[in-house]
Design a protein around this nucleic acid. Structure first.
Lengths: 188, 188
DNA sequence: GAAATAAGTCAACATGGCTGACATAACCGA
DNA sequence: TCGGTTATGTCAGCCATGTTGACTTATTTC
């Protein structure tokens, strides 16, 4: 019953209903281009590891878990849930597989034995590096293409893209702390 | 049977097997940080529209289709397949729903009547703008936080992140051509 | 000792990828 | 005009990965 707008005159490019106006100096058109570029960039960023994972009967979810366990060895299940923003049931599925296949091991927490700290095995480290390799090449080339001094710009941009309330958490994660990341929970 | 590496001495941070060495001046650690930042940035970039979509009984796949149809009004199904890099069966599922709900209309191609050109309805344009709004705010703020002149850097970076062979295609898409995007197929 | 917390589990369901097979309509060249 | 190719659509089923809800176990904390 929904009468669609006349398809004879579709999508007036200038006629923006009002959502736009101007945002801090950036035109809507320009911002939309960045949105699209981000989509394309991320689409291809994940492509190489996805192909490798297929050979191992695993998916992108496994990659994410393995990456963070490898990079931030010793983190707890709760930290991982926080980072990935998925439910423990979703995490459990892939984590169990990674443990069963010998890519990750867990140990009871040092101070709190209810906690499970996660560590990569040698095999896990090897796979994590293999998955990361093409992504690092891509990033290095893109940074080079961006010109000198682009790293600082990139870092500021990406950090600002993160939800403001999560930035402290992300920062603390980025410091590759070998200690379980309690910051943002009760700590500071 | 897989004997895991001794979990007592997990993840020597310096002991990189050889995948690393040095990539064009960027340390592996730095590149990994960018990889993580990109993950967090994209994670949050998609969060706002995902929440809105839920109220409409739709998912991220609908958003992607609606976005590109709205931005590049008149593109063909084949163009969309190319952009999203999914199968026509996957696209069909969400596209059909968007058409049934009156967000998108199709017309037979002007020169080739086998083709289906896709257009947003008024309703579709409205939803696309509503979904884009929080993302554009986020992007504008992040660009501002990146400092003056960051746009050019960002653009170069994101374009370089795209697979080299797809860059011409992406460029032609970005020009918001109102004409069906035949470039990269047989054209130039 | 009771309550709270960290983690694990079972069951069911939704979304959105995939493959394979096949149908229809339209175009295009011989 | 006919036959092959192309653009699109569709059916059927599978897989990965997200969700909610309910419940258990081990451990810590008050």
């Amino acid at each position: 019953m929904e009468k669609p707008a006349d398809p004879k005159a579709p999508a007036k490019p200038g006629g923006n209903g009002g959502a736009a106006r101007r945002r801090a100096n950036f035109s809507e058109a320009k911002l939309l281009e960045f949105a699209e570029l981000l989509f394309f960039a991320y689409r291809d960023f994940t492509r190489d590891p996805d192909a490798i994972l297929k050979d191992f009967g695993m998916g992108r979810a496994h990659h994410r878990v393995l990456h963070f366990v490898n990079r931030h060895s010793g983190l707890r299940v709760a930290d991982l849930l926080d980072i990935l923003t998925i439910t423990k049931q979703s995490l459990s599925r892939v984590l169990k597989q990674l443990i069963d296949k010998g890519y990750i091991v867990q140990r009871a927490g040092a101070s709190d034995r209810r906690e499970r700290q996660l560590f990569p095995t040698e095999k896990g480290r090897a796979l994590a590096e293999r998955l990361a390799a093409p992504q690092l090449v891509r990033l290095a080339e893109a940074l080079r293409a961006s010109g000198p001094g682009s790293e600082a710009v990139l870092r500021r941009f990406l950090e600002a893209m993160v939800n403001a309330e999560d930035r402290p958490k992300v920062s603390s994660i980025m410091q590759a702390s070998p200690v379980p990341l309690k910051a943002g929970k009760g700590g500071g």
